[in-house]
Each structure stands twice: as C-alpha cells, then as structure tokens.
Design a protein around this nucleic acid. Structure first.
Lengths: 247, 247
DNA sequence: AATATAACAGAACAATCGTTCTATGTCAAG
DNA sequence: CTTGACATAGAACGATTGTTCTGTTATATT
C-alpha cells in the first residue's frame, strides 16, 4: 500500500507523465497524443491522463493548446533537485546522437603511399593494418558511391606531374579501391610491364585489345595489344585536390 | 559518358513549407497539422500540402510518422527550439555545434550553383539560406586549412570542359570561399569583363599588371594590363572529383 | 461507520486530422 | 493538336484524438 506523498510536490504519475512527455519529444520530435501517453505511462484511461495534464498545466509545468491534438508544450523540467535539468540533458542527448550519426558518415582512409610514374602502385596487402599507414584522409561517406563499404579503400598521394593527362597532378590525393572486377569505363591505376610505368587511365577492353583513354578529352588514347602487359592495380574512386597554400 | 545525379533544388512551395515547419515548431513546440500548414503557407488544399510533404520526405528534409497527426520531424535544420528557455537552449546549441564540429570534423557545404565559362560565378548572398542550396557536400575538416572557420564556404559544380586548363573538368566540385583578401598565388574564380568569361586561374599582381596562370604548367599565362576587368569571385579551397560511375 | 474527496476506468461523442479520389489547369514534348 | 507529366483545388471518408460523462475504487477525515 503506497501512500501518496505530497512532500515532493509531484506525485508518481505526474512525474511519470512529465518523463514520458520529455522522452517522447526527444525521440520523435513532436509531443505524444493522450492515448500514446496512456501507453507509455501505463495508464489505461485517456481521461486519467487528461486529468493529470490539467493538473500539470495549472502547476505551470506544461502548457496546452486547447483541443488541438498533441498541443502540449513542456515548460519546466521535472527534475528539480538534480543539478542539471532534464531539458538540458535531452538537448545534450540529441546532440550526442547527431555527433554519432555524423561520425558514422565519416570514413578514415589510410594513405598507404605515393603514386609515381616510375614505380608500381603500392597496393595494401590483405592483412594490411591501419597502423602501417603514413597518415589518414577523412572522406565524407556521402561523397562515395553508396555501395562502398569503405573498409578496403586506400589513398595515395600523387607525386610529380606525370599524371597530367589524367587531369591529376602533383599533390592530389586519389582514393582507390582494390581492383577486383574491372569494367569498361573504370578509371584505373595501371602498371605497364613493357614500359615500367604507372598511369591513371580509363580502361576499355575491346576485342582482345586494351584501350587506355586519358581523362583529358583532348589527348589521344594508348592502345595495348597484349593485355598481359597491363597490370591493373586499383580503381580510382575519388580525387581530392587541396588548393590551400602556406601564405 | 559521365552522368551525375543530384537532388534538384527546392521549389518555392517546398521552401515555404520548410520555413513554416521550422517557425511553427519554434513558436509552439510541436509540429503543425496539415491544415495549419495550409494556412501558414497560403495553400488552399490539404492534398497539396500532403503532396509536398511526401516530396520533402523523399528528399530527406523531413521524416513523417505514418498517418499520425503532426507526425513530422525536421531533419536537416538545427532550429528546433523547445518551449523551455530560448536563451539557454540556443546557448547550448551553439556550444553543441562547436563541439560537434570539432569532434567529428565534418563540414556541410552548400552547393549553390554551377560554374560555367559563359556566366559569372553564382556567389551566395549574405542572407543566404541553406534551403536555397541544391544539395550539400560533406567535407572533412581535416582536409581544409586549419584557419577556415567554414561557415562562409560554398561549393559549385563545374559544368562543361572549359576549365581544362585549370585541371578541372566537367562534374568536378569546387569548394570556394568568398574573396575577401586575395593574395598572389591564390587560385581564384575570375570574371573577365572584357571577354564575358569565367575562368579559374592562379592570381598574381605584378607591378600593376595581373598575371593569370593556368594550373596546368604546360599552358601559358594570360596577362591583363587593366586590373579593373578582372572581377574576382572567390578563392578555390578544394577540388573534389567523384569518379563513381553508374555501371 | 459515514462521507467527502481524490484517483481511476471505460465509453461515447464531436472535432480534428491524414489520406485519397476526382477534377481542373498548365506547360513542354511529340 | 494531342499527350502526358506536374501542380493545384476541393471534397469526402475514415482514423485519430481531445473532451466529457458516468461510474467505481481508494484514502482520509470526521
């Protein structure tokens, strides 16, 4: 048998309803209907909730807009004795969720090396550990194709101006993905065995012959009759150029 | 060859409804009903509002809880002030935004238009609303110069291959910053009065004469004797090229 | 014990509200 | 000119929802 104590000012159900109001608004962004309060507060009758809402309003805890559905405004928080008000904590909670969401949208790609014309592309081994990376590049997940899970992506810094025909030059960062299946039209990093040279070109396989098309449309393609000399190192997913200069 | 899908810009009514949603929630603490949106947005039919709410939801601006009255959540904007203390919550929100930015290092930059050779660069006005943006581009703050506060940054999508001499081509996204002080060596977007042409060039002021140097080192610079024909629209901070294709 | 009062339950009702259907107008492509 | 998207309007329907009414139970006071 639980006696109602008026000492605290708020009864259990009054406090409970206030909690429901706050939590609901935090979760859904709009106030609950009376019947939804019934559910969340384990009260079986709408009239009881209405009864308490009237009380809370006359006490100044909430404000109600007459006969408008969900017309409930929270005015002051329920927890008085606690140091931090519940409104503040709920705001913090919302922010925390935002932070969590946006952290998820950020992808940390390891920069595993440089890409130079005279050397093959340093492709990370399968057991690659992120600790081996020289540094990291943060990429917004929203800029990547949706299907990229991203775990296997890696980045390379371009050194020298030998990739100018690919519209890529010194200092650019290319985000790459290991070449599993390469399709016609993919921009790929290629090691040409016969020339000992790395290039970035659009790849086309046309009746047994490989056509390597520069990104710059004003430049002519390279044709390779023997596909075995074309060693595909990875597909380019993105190119980032930081124009910032050191004043 | 390279198709690009991008969320379309907001129509007047879409923007209007978003404004109503935000203002209503700020004022009352709960979302408006469809008929209340009708009134505030000067739309005579509930079905039209419903029509646009569906659009806004599929664009990701809001979230709707099926057939629940006032079941509208604003997603993109941060302006949801509860009926508590506006001063307190706004302070908290400012702080929270700082925390968020410094924790996750992600910056949401609005794409305010396209950059074409034949037209001046669309620079966002000071009263620019993010609703006006066609879409957003997320940029990792770690890739930007440390001193960029970032609030004034904007992005443009390059249309056409007329910027090839700047190593930038069709579909690239340039992150820009309004031209306040331009220093020698900055990569700037320039409107040439005498030619009616926009270009991206490195800017040098040398004894009263302007030298515009293409990014591509193999190309020759342009010299402009009269600096008044050079209209600087902004400084390029970053260039992003998404190579993703719709294979 | 009697009684007043507060707490609670359930149902019924009317207003509100979201949804859907039909109809009209507009405008660009064919 | 026809066609077909798209935008808009209005009305109607059914579900949701706030309100109210009647009634029951519990607690406290006299």
């Amino acid at each position: 048998m639980m006696a109602r104590r008026r000492a605290k000012g708020l009864t259990d159900r009054q406090r409970k309803i206030l909690e429901v109001l706050e939590r609901f608004h935090t979760q859904f962004g709009y106030p609950p209907s009376i019947r939804e309060i019934c559910d969340k507060a384990a009260i079986s009758s709408t009239s009881v909730v209405n009864y308490y809402l009237d009380q809370l309003e006359s006490m100044g805890y909430i404000e109600r807009d007459g006969r408008v559905s969900r017309g409930i405004r929270l005015l002051k928080p329920a927890g008085e004795t606690e140091g931090v008000s519940t409104a503040v904590t709920s705001t913090i909670r919302q922010t925390a969720q935002l932070v969590r969401q946006e952290v998820d949208e950020l992808l940390r790609v390891p920069v595993v090396g440089r890409i130079v014309a005279s050397e093959p592309v340093p492709v990370p081994p399968s057991d690659f550990s992120y600790y081996d990376a020289e540094s990291m590049v943060d990429v917004a997940r929203s800029l990547l194709p949706a299907r990229e899970k991203g775990e296997q992506l890696f980045a390379l810094e371009v050194q020298g101006n030998s990739m100018i025909d690919a519209m890529i030059f010194d200092g650019d960062i290319v985000i790459m993905k290991p070449a599993q299946e390469v399709r016609n039209g993919d921009l790929v990093a290629i090691w040409l065995n016969d020339r000992d040279e790395t290039t970035l070109k659009y790849f086309f396989l046309e009746n047994g012959r490989v056509r390597l098309q520069p990104a710059n449309p004003t430049m002519a393609p390279i044709y390779v009759d023997d596909p075995s000399v074309v060693d595909i190192q990875g597909k380019v997913v993105m190119v980032i150029r930081q124009v910032q200069r050191q004043g």
